[in-house]
Amino acid sequence: HEITLHINGRRVKLRFRDEKAAEILKEAAKKGLDEEELKKLAEELWR
């Protein structure tokens, strides 16, 4: 699955395995994680 989040006016595509991962990524984006941090988090969730 993929999700596209808008971060600092940019579109960031993240891959994720399940809905739980999608929710975690959305929450992290709301908390203000930047693009690099979100990509790292997405990679961690993928494993």
Score class of each variant (00 low, 15 high):
His1Leu: 11
His1Asn: 14
His1Ala: 11
His1Phe: 15
His1Glu: 08
His1Cys: 10
His1Gly: 15
Glu2Arg: 06
Glu2Thr: 14
Glu2Pro: 03
Glu2Lys: 06
Glu2Phe: 15
Glu2Ser: 12
Glu2Gln: 09
Ile3Pro: 00
Ile3Ser: 01
Ile3His: 02
Thr4Asn: 05
Thr4Phe: 09
Thr4Cys: 07
Thr4Ala: 05
Thr4Leu: 09
Thr4Gln: 04
Thr4Lys: 03
Leu5Ala: 02
Leu5Trp: 01
Leu5Pro: 00
Leu5Tyr: 03
His6Asp: 14
His6Tyr: 15
His6Met: 15
His6Ile: 15
His6Gln: 13
His6Phe: 14
His6Thr: 15
Ile7Tyr: 03
Ile7Val: 14
Ile7Pro: 02
Ile7Gly: 01
Ile7Met: 05
Ile7Asp: 01
Ile7Arg: 02
Asn8Arg: 07
Asn8Ala: 06
Asn8Ser: 06
Asn8Gln: 08
Gly9Cys: 05
Gly9Gln: 03
Gly9Trp: 00
Gly9Tyr: 00
Gly9Ala: 03
Arg10Ala: 07
Arg10Gly: 06
Arg11Lys: 15
Arg11Ala: 15
Arg11Glu: 14
Arg11Thr: 15
Val12Asn: 00
Val12Cys: 04
Val12His: 02
Val12Pro: 01
Val12Ile: 11
Val12Met: 04
Lys13Ile: 15
Lys13Thr: 15
Lys13Asp: 04
Lys13Gly: 03
Leu14Asp: 00
Leu14Thr: 01
Leu14Trp: 02
Arg15His: 07
Arg15Trp: 11
Arg15Tyr: 14
Arg15Leu: 07
Phe16Asn: 02
Phe16Cys: 14
Phe16Pro: 02
Phe16Ala: 15
Phe16Gly: 04
Phe16Tyr: 15
Phe16Glu: 00
Phe16Trp: 05
Arg17Lys: 12
Arg17Cys: 12
Arg17Ile: 10
Arg17Leu: 08
Asp18Glu: 08
Asp18Trp: 04
Asp18Ala: 04
Asp18His: 06
Glu19Phe: 12
Glu19Asp: 11
Glu19Gly: 08
Lys20Gln: 11
Lys20Asp: 05
Lys20Tyr: 12
Lys20Pro: 08
Ala21Gln: 07
Ala21Gly: 11
Ala22Trp: 08
Ala22Leu: 15
Ala22His: 05
Glu23His: 12
Glu23Asp: 11
Glu23Cys: 06
Glu23Val: 11
Ile24Asp: 04
Ile24Trp: 05
Leu25Glu: 00
Leu25Arg: 00
Leu25Cys: 04
Leu25Lys: 00
Leu25Phe: 07
Leu25Asp: 00
Leu25Val: 06
Lys26Ile: 14
Lys26Thr: 10
Lys26Ser: 07
Lys26Trp: 10
Glu27Asn: 10
Glu27Gly: 08
Glu27His: 08
Glu27Ser: 12
Glu27Arg: 09
Glu27Pro: 00
Ala28Gln: 07
Ala28Asn: 06
Ala28Val: 04
Ala28Gly: 06
Ala28Phe: 07
Ala28Lys: 05
Ala28Trp: 08
Ala28Asp: 01
Ala28Arg: 04
Ala29Leu: 09
Ala29Thr: 05
Ala29Val: 12
Ala29Asn: 06
Ala29Phe: 13
Lys30Ile: 10
Lys30Pro: 01
Lys30Met: 13
Lys30Phe: 12
Lys30Ala: 13
Lys30Asn: 13
Lys31Asp: 11
Lys31Glu: 12
Gly32Asn: 06
Gly32Lys: 04
Gly32Pro: 03
Gly32Ser: 04
Gly32Cys: 06
Gly32Trp: 05
Leu33Arg: 07
Leu33Trp: 14
Leu33His: 08
Asp34Val: 09
Asp34Gly: 14
Asp34Tyr: 07
Asp34Ala: 11
Asp34Leu: 11
Glu35Asp: 07
Glu35Phe: 11
Glu35Ser: 08
Glu35Pro: 09
Glu35Ala: 11
Glu36Val: 13
Glu36Ile: 12
Glu36Thr: 13
Glu37Trp: 07
Glu37His: 12
Glu37Phe: 10
Glu37Cys: 14
Glu37Arg: 12
Glu37Met: 12
Glu37Leu: 10
Glu37Ile: 08
Glu37Gly: 15
Leu38Val: 09
Leu38Glu: 00
Leu38Thr: 02
Leu38Phe: 03
Lys39Gly: 07
Lys39Asn: 07
Lys39Thr: 10
Lys39Ser: 08
Lys39Cys: 03
Lys39Gln: 11
Lys40Leu: 12
Lys40Trp: 10
Lys40His: 11
Lys40Gly: 09
Lys40Glu: 13
Lys40Cys: 05
Lys40Val: 09
Lys40Ser: 12
Leu41Pro: 00
Ala42His: 02
Ala42Gln: 03
Glu43Asn: 08
Glu43Leu: 10
Glu43Arg: 09
Glu44Pro: 00
Glu44Trp: 11
Glu44Leu: 13
Glu44Asp: 12
Glu44Met: 10
Leu45Arg: 01
Leu45Asp: 01
Trp46Ile: 03
Trp46Pro: 01
Trp46Arg: 02
Trp46Gln: 02
Trp46Cys: 02
Arg47Thr: 14
Arg47Lys: 14
Arg47Trp: 13
Arg47Ser: 13
Arg47Gly: 13
Arg47Met: 14
Arg47Pro: 04
Arg47Ile: 15
